[in-house]
Simulated scan of single mutants.
Amino acid sequence: MTEEEAQAWLRAEYDVSRETWERLEAFNALLRDEMQRQNLISRASADSLWARHIVDSAQLLRYAPTPDSGKIWLDLGTGAGFPGMIIAILTRYQVRMVESRKRRVEFLNDVIAKTGIAEHASVIADRLENVESFPVDVISARAFAPLERLIALSHRFSTKNTLWLLPKGKNAVRELKGLSPKRQKMFHVEHSLTDPDAGILVGKG
């Protein structure tokens, strides 16, 4: 997927308003500027920011319920803002982004302030182990931890109706097979739009 194809897909898939598009472009600019001070994404992927990171994050919404003002999306290890910041810009989910690294927390808070999404986006600046439990509607994690550890750390935020959206790249099937049979039944694998060899684990419960 080229950068032009990625932008066209976003516009077609989500009927992006001018205001939302301006927020995406502002985030893009803030990220590129911050990369001069800290390593947020690989230099190699910076030239494919729309395809490798923005659309790669936005595609998770294809599997998520339509958000209302009360639905909570918990994103683990948000890092440079993927997928949590993209979900917050594109939707009205109450997005809670867990990130423990101080400089990345400062960057995420700066993006929230400058894109005007503070009403429904916030950063939890701590390790997940230290965060008090609360029920959420969606849990996502792009590069947080191996699957078994990820579930062990975060299952206390889930209910029987919680949706799990976990991009796992080329390791999706292998990581899924490493779970207990009971937990394997929670998930199925969807193919990524941005990488035909990559998988997204979609689960419930």
Rank of each mutant, 00 (worst) to 15 (best):
A143P: 05
E13A: 15
A143D: 09
K102I: 12
R52N: 10
L40E: 03
G77H: 03
S154D: 03
E22A: 11
E4Q: 15
S42Q: 13
N171C: 10
E148V: 10
P167M: 09
P181I: 09
S154H: 05
M97K: 01
D137M: 09
M97R: 00
L128W: 10
R156Q: 11
T159L: 12
D137H: 14
H155P: 03
N109R: 14
R104S: 06
E190K: 13
V123F: 05
Y63A: 11
L61G: 04
W50C: 01
N171A: 15
D15Q: 14
R23G: 02
I112T: 02
Q7K: 15
R103C: 07
I41C: 09
D33E: 15
E106H: 13
G70H: 14
E190A: 14
E3M: 07
K182Q: 15
L31R: 02
I139D: 04
R96L: 08
A26F: 11
S122V: 09
A51D: 03
Y93M: 02
T115L: 04
R62M: 13
L176H: 03
F187M: 06
I124Y: 11
P65G: 09
F157W: 04
A121D: 00
L61C: 09
K160I: 13
S57P: 03
P135Y: 08
T159E: 13
L90V: 10
L179M: 06
S100K: 11
L49N: 03
T194R: 00
T78N: 00
A152T: 07
V173M: 13
K185A: 15
L40K: 04
G79D: 01
W73C: 01
A46V: 13
